[in-house]
Design a protein around this nucleic acid. Structure first.
Length: 493
RNA sequence: GGGCCCUUAGCUCAACUGGCAGAGCAAAUGACUCUUAAUCAUUAGGUUGUCGGUUCGAUUCCGACAGGGCUCACCA
């Protein structure tokens, strides 16, 4: 352990406590109350009402502040859901307990029990009649007023962030709440929650580079999944007509404020529904979540007011390119003009790229960031949608939408392609692109084709990025603020 | 991967044009029985991220490296 004056002083205190026979890490004390429970119950009780209570209350938590007055002191104890003030009077504690109190440091985990009262400044306070050290802290905490702001320390030592910054705890309570609400909503609509492989012999279901690993006994290369999609649809084929999974996927791509290599997605599949059904279903889901979190449909993200009131705007890719990107109709259909337009707005496109792919490049470059209020973008080109069902009226388009809020893709959904012949052709087309140098093109999955050959019911499926949803609903600027341990470069100690 | 920026005490931050590295909080000691960023006095706390260079002299200028942030590219 490092040689540091502050640590040495604490070690001396520990020696003093030990020689007085104090157990530094006992585990035989159980608090009967929490700070939140006490504050909730008695926030409106006046001094007389508190004095009339015969009960004693006990709490345990981290000592966050000590304000000493010679023979008395006020302390702040923080637990799971909040904090409360304690009052230490020299005459209320046994000499042994008072000795322990004098050796305490900010950061120690302690237990106190006693009666409730209100101070002269009317703060609800526990007067300690018993005090016990539950776990000794050796290292000093970050400063009480400014807290911990160094982002690197916040992510690497998230426990310090959680101790010092109460807002961080609130974000992760809310993340949990959002996921709980999603489960409730899906369960209420008769969806079955399932778990499918994270380690896959082939990484399919999305267009992305995977992480590779190896199983020793089987001597087989495996990939961390980039999406659960193909497995979930195998389950639909098996008769699980409504399934969902909320779990991690892994993509070996860049890291920035909207991308973490591992991220949480919900995917769900709904037989005998189509992508239009998914639009209204998605609206209902978001309304359900927002109604619980905000008691309303409006909230602010990074200074912009977002209104979730349905119905949300529906906009085809083509209309988006005409109306928002400012393309002429001929720019969409004449390949030379399309490429010229793409290059003009700064897209890196190849001469032989499919037209649909170039359209999407322009869309991503120009349109995406302008879709602030919730918008369903529909009618994607088949070239960028190898797993989606073709439109009945326009076979070069697919029955698909992506949901954009605040210029970011939040969800991706489509009517599923369940024609095994067409699916095989799409995979072959992707193989061509892979051979042409696109190492993110989708791989062939023969077993998935075989499953479709047994007939999969007409189905619609959707994936929702949970981290991005949580960012939105917690007004967080970075995905790292909604993931407890975001991936950072490992540091040599 | 490219560009720009950041790294000084446990934490939050100063230090002019290169001239003895400072404050607040936290800590120690003392005073104080109603404070809540308690107050007052005293004290201690540093290889200025690492390595190298320029210089009489480097926290400061230059180079390399490490880590981080923003951004562009790729992606969700």
């Amino acid at each position: 352990m490092e040689d540091n004056e502050l640590l040495n002083i604490r070690r001396e205190k520990i020696a003093d406590l030990k020689s007085a026979g104090v157990d530094l890490y006992p585990n035989d004390v159980k608090p009967q109350n929490t700070t939140a429970e006490i504050l909730g119950k008695f926030e409106n009780s006046d001094s007389d009402a508190l004095a009339a209570l015969s009960e004693t209350f006990s709490i345990a938590g981290r000592l966050m502040a000590v304000r000493n007055f010679g023979k008395a002191a006020f302390i702040k104890i923080q637990d799971y859901k909040g904090h409360i003030q304690g009052y230490i009077g020299k005459n209320s504690l046994s000499p042994e307990e008072y000795f322990v109190f004098k050796k305490l440091d900010i950061g120690d985990i302690i237990f106190i029990s006693g009666k409730l009262f209100r101070t002269k400044t009317n703060e609800l306070t526990i007067e300690a009649q018993k005090l016990k050290l539950l776990s000794k802290s050796i290292r000093p905490l970050p400063e009480k007023w400014h807290g911990l702001t160094d982002v690197e320390t916040r992510y690497r030592q998230r426990y310090l962030d959680l101790i010092a910054n109460s807002r961080v705890k609130e974000i992760f309570y809310r993340r949990s709440r959002i996921i709980k609400l999603i489960r409730q909503f899906m369960d209420d609509h008769d969806f079955l929650e399932v778990e499918t492989p994270m380690m896959q012999p082939r990484a399919g279901g999305a267009v992305a580079r995977p992480f590779k690993t190896h199983h020793n006994t089987l001597d087989t290369d495996l990939y961390l999944r980039i999406a659960p999609e193909l497995y979930l649809k195998r389950l639909v084929t098996g008769g699980l007509e409504r399934v969902y999974e909320i779990n991690r996927s892994f993509r070996n791509e860049g890291i920035d404020t909207f991308h973490n290599p591992e991220f949480t997605m919900m995917e769900f599949y709904w037989s005998f529904a189509d992508y239009r059904d998914l639009m209204s279903f998605t609206e209902k889901l978001f309304v359900f979540i927002a109604g619980d979190l905000f008691q309303g449909l409006k909230f602010t993200y990074q200074g912009t007011e977002i209104d979730l009131t349905p119905p949300w705007q529906r906009l085809s890719v083509k209309d988006a390119l005409l109306q928002i990107a400012g393309m002429e109709p001929a720019d969409l259909t004449d390949p030379a003009r399309t490429i010229a337009f793409a290059r003009k707005v700064g897209c890196d496109v190849k001469e032989n790229d499919p037209l649909g792919k170039i359209h999407m490049a322009i869309f991503d470059e120009v349109v995406e960031k302008k879709l602030i209020q919730p918008t369903f973008v529909t009618d994607y080109p088949v070239a960028v949608s190898p797993l989606s069902r073709r439109s009945n009226t326009e076979p070069e388009l697919v029955d698909r939408f992506e949901l954009y809020i605040c210029g970011r893709e939040i969800a991706n959904a489509f009517s599923e392609l369940n024609d095994p012949v067409d699916q095989k052709e799409r995979f072959l087309q992707q193989l061509h692109e892979r051979e042409a140098g696109d190492d993110e093109a989708h791989e062939m999955d023969e077993d998935y084709i075989r499953a479709l050959e047994y007939a999969m019911p007409p189905t619609a499926g959707e994936g929702i990025g949970i981290d991005r949803l949580v960012m939105l609903f917690t007004d967080s600027a970075s995905i790292r603020d909604v993931i407890l341990f975001p991936l950072l470069r490992t540091r040599q100690e």
